[in-house]
Nucleic acid binder design. Structure first.
Lengths: 187, 187
DNA sequence: ACCACTTGTGCGTTATAACGTACAGTAAAA
DNA sequence: TTTTACTGTACGTTATAACGCACAAGTGGT
């Protein structure tokens, strides 16, 4: 993550400009003095957390919208074809196609995975805080955790902590196709 | 979003405890005085943005990990069955099943949607900054935007700005089933 | 041109963040 | 038991955030 102090001045200026508020109006809405708001916009002062919160709530924006890298103006429309993009990632034949690779703005990555008939796999714990989703598109899948086993059939989805050990098993005679989405805590 | 000042003291204490750092060691790593770190942990002082950044980088965590609601220690494993949970949301017969309703920690909501044969729908723009994914599980779908049209077949996925007008069209004689995921900016 | 009002900046004052240091309490070693 | 080292807190000092107010410049109306 980048230094919030680099973005706060520009973000605040933009938020005020979009609303067409003067410093006086912004001061009224936020309860922070116009002199201070001016200093922040000019990068002449580093406000306290309490003052930042006053500003965020006064403008009706989230905290991160105030201090984070501004979200891009235009997100590109993009199409991905999982039929064309399949690739094997292990010797045992599991196939993975990326629907969305990790994007900081989203905080997740999303795959289509094919587990061949009879396939088994034990997954090491992912990074701390990872939340994982498996949604079964075709076939069925057995999910194994330390203390429980879940059998998922077509149309069923599971959410679980990806930061603990888990296993996948396709005990059937046909391929299982799933969506696998992993969300990383703290983005 | 909730007031970061409510969470910072606990978050900082926890981060330090996990690393088994004394205040002295934390002060060395962050470049912030141990007296100040102690004040922050006890909620006796509201640090400036610059000081918060020093702390975050010293601990090697993201800014949001320092000031946001701490991620839950245990995320519940939960299974959702889209086969059982379908419900009509409009008179024209589109069916929606929730895989994951909006969760602040994730920043998105995720649906399985069935567009019946011949179905058309124009969607008003969602909230500013929304990024939307459509992944076609069964059948095909035509996506219409202001300046372009995309035809998606089974296995294809599209990412686009959900905050602009768009339309869905299933021109075929069979149902189309998709996953629709909407990510909200700024969580 | 003159006047009234608004806007953003600068400045002095007040409040508090941030610091360095001393110290009481605790734990471990001699 | 005594000594040493470490820990977190309190306190006084320094630096700066945050404020209220004055003012120069700009704008719009008469």
């Amino acid at each position: 993550m980048q230094n919030p102090s680099d973005f706060l001045p520009g973000n605040l200026k933009k938020l005020r400009s979009v609303r067409q508020w003067s410093l006086t109006q912004a001061a009224e809405q936020t309860g922070v003095s116009k002199a201070m708001l001016g200093q922040i916009e000019r990068g002449e002062s580093s406000p306290t957390l309490a003052t930042l919160w006053k500003i965020a709530t006064g403008f009706g924006v989230s905290f991160s919208e105030l201090v984070n890298v501004a979200t891009p103006v235009k997100d590109k429309t993009r199409v991905v074809d999982s039929n064309l993009a399949k690739k094997a990632i292990s010797d045992d034949g599991m196939l993975v196609s990326i629907i969305q690779d990790f994007d900081l703005a989203l905080g997740f990555e999303w795959f289509e995975i094919t587990f061949p008939a009879g396939y088994e796999r034990q997954s090491a714990p992912h990074k701390k805080g990872v939340i994982e989703f498996i949604s079964v598109l075709k076939g069925s899948l057995i999910m194994e955790f330390e203390t429980e086993i879940k059998e998922l059939s077509e149309g069923q989805s599971i959410r679980f902590q990806g930061d603990r050990e888990h296993g996948y098993r396709n005990h059937t005679k046909q391929d299982t196709v799933v969506h696998c989405l992993m969300h990383y805590a703290g983005k």
